[in-house]
């Protein structure tokens, strides 16, 4: 408890885009409840604070830390350990922290390829081809930047995580309900779920919330939704050949994309109990292909031109696969 008696709250971003922070602010007037119940002690995107301030706090003094972003470099890792030590409840918040998300797709590339893309490729404005160095001698002495790791790891691959909150970003109503829950726990009106649980989401899949009609599936062709001649707005997208990831994706978003006529891309991650989202989905899609002819099957599969992006867009780092072979070499 702080001087004003309110429990302390921290939020941190590692390798992420910042969308998770916006989602937190997007909870609307709930933020007032939040403010009434918590004292924010550390939140780089919202307030000024230094790492040394956190280091100075007693261990376990922060009640709740929401961590978004994957562990991409040494700084991320150090702060993960620091906040773990200082926090009672550490939540992997959002897809990057729970399963790697888009930054995790870099695990298919070597460090050199990543640097090339960032500093030398056609999209970079870097005529002198400068590359940042970990250590640089300056007149004032040596300065350093954090070391870049060969792979991106999820938060729980580095420190123990108490709860997971999926989504890219987590839906604001889900955030609000989690905050509500914590406040109720503080007031003794509710109990926390078992450690290691996924919070702010359901245990079933997106299909459970999707109003589209579902039948037995027999797919003769996979296609982009834009290429469908007469998309049926009431029929399951997968049945129409659109590779919708809804059947494998955790329930929580309210099936927003399929209702808007776009396939689910899987940002809420694997459903409860699924260990490797991509593998599950690959075997599920393979199961609905309506052919026994190897050549025809081959042709049907050509309708999924980017399997890594289709099946592992959000969870490569958190999958059993974790990374491609290239990332092994520095």
């Amino acid at each position: 408890m702080s001087a004003n008696g309110k429990p302390k709250f921290a939020m941190y971003w590692a390798a992420s885009c910042g969308g998770c922070e916006i989602a937190v602010l997007n909870i609307g007037e709930k933020i007032l409840d939040f403010d009434a119940n918590f004292e924010v002690v550390f939140w780089p995107v919202a307030m000024d604070a230094k790492y040394k301030d956190v280091e100075a706090m007693p261990d376990q003094s922060i009640l709740l830390t929401l961590w978004n972003g994957g562990i991409r470099n040494k700084e991320n890792e150090e702060i993960a350990h620091l906040l773990r030590r200082k926090s009672q409840i550490l939540v992997a918040f959002g897809s990057c922290a729970t399963e790697g998300c888009i930054p995790g797709l870099a695990n298919f590339s070597s460090t050199e390829e990543i640097f090339h893309a960032a500093y030398d490729s056609i999209s970079s404005e870097n005529p002198e081809k400068l590359r940042p160095q970990y250590r640089t001698q300056m007149p004032e002495g040596e300065i350093s930047i954090p070391e870049f790791y060969p792979t991106l790891r999820t938060l729980d691959q580095v420190v123990k995580v108490d709860y997971y909150m999926p989504g890219c970003p987590p839906e604001s109503h889900q955030i609000a309900s989690v905050i509500d829950l914590v406040i109720q726990v503080l007031q003794g009106k509710a109990t926390l779920p078992p450690a290691g649980s996924v919070i702010g989401a359901g245990i079933s899949t997106v299909c459970d919330d999707c109003p589209r009609q579902r039948n037995v599936k027999l797919v003769k062709k996979f296609t982009r939704i834009q290429a469908l001649q007469n998309p049926d707005p009431t029929l399951c997208l997968l049945e129409q050949g659109v590779p919708c990831n809804g059947p494998a994706t955790r329930q929580g978003c309210g099936a927003l994309c399929p209702q808007a006529g776009a396939q689910c891309i899987g940002c809420y991650g694997p459903a409860e109990g699924v260990i490797d989202y991509g593998a599950r989905l690959i075997s599920a899609f393979a199961s609905v292909i309506d052919s026994t002819d190897p050549d025809e099957i081959e042709a049907i599969l050509d309708g999924i031109p980017d399997p890594a992006g289709q099946f592992y867009r959000f969870n490569l780092a958190g999958s059993l696969l974790r990374a491609g072979m290239k990332s092994w070499s520095r």
Partner: peptide
Amino acid sequence: VDQDKCSGCRICNSM
């Protein structure tokens, strides 16, 4: 089948 987890996507139905 865990009835709570099943969302009735019907992918298994013809299997």
